[in-house]
Design a binder for these strands. Structure first.
Length: 168
DNA sequence: GTTTAGATCAACT
DNA sequence: GTTGATCTAAACG
């Protein structure tokens, strides 16, 4: 199955207190590794998927927050239950559940077309091609809550709502 | 000191 | 009823 990514958040290295890479530990080491690899972490009872985006040693990654399911809706529904289609991969926890991403996929090379991977958008069949990308503060982060490092496609129903952290 | 499991709660649907 | 770069505490190395 495949989803069209509609919402992401950027997390930087040592200068971003909201990032797991803020402190360099064995867990965050993957963020300091080569780019285009998958970083998965657990929160509550969910998983969240990130793409390492920086050259080795820099520690930047992008959290995939939401997507629109463009293929394999039935497979997503099997994992997510009978929710509305635009909600199948809305929110980082829902997205990983819809795609079936777990920690078993940690460190996957996302340019390798085996298993979970990234593909460029197809302008011919992509309804959001040319869509407006808007930036704003990240969702639910307590630290560095005002950095406008969340990016989403304007008007996409699959984009999650903004919630500021109560103690931010 | 770091990681993981489990809880928690305010804003969301 | 759900969701979640939170929070705390116990387990780990």
């Amino acid at each position: 199955m495949s989803v069209r990514i509609t919402e992401v958040e950027a997390y930087n290295g040592p200068d971003d207190p909201a990032s797991h890479a803020f402190t360099r530990t064995p867990r965050s080491e993957i963020m300091y590794g080569p780019p285009n690899r998958l970083y998965v972490y657990q929160i509550h009872t969910h998983h969240c998927a990130n793409v390492v985006t920086s050259p080795e040693g820099q520690g930047s990654a992008v959290l995939i927050r939401a997507g629109a399911v463009i293929d394999g809706v039935q497979a997503a529904r099997d994992r997510r239950g009978g929710v509305a289609e635009h909600l199948l991969a809305r929110g980082p926890g829902n997205l990983t559940r819809a795609l079936g991403i777990t920690k078993a996929d940690l460190d996957t090379d996302l340019l390798d077309p085996v298993g979970v991977h990234l593909l460029p958008a197809d302008p011919a069949s992509d309804p959001t091609a040319g869509g407006h990308v808007i930036a704003g503060p990240r969702v639910g982060v307590r630290l560095a809550a005002d950095r406008p490092w969340r990016f989403w496609i304007d008007g996409e129903p699959s984009v999650s709502a903004y919630r500021r952290h109560p103690r931010a």
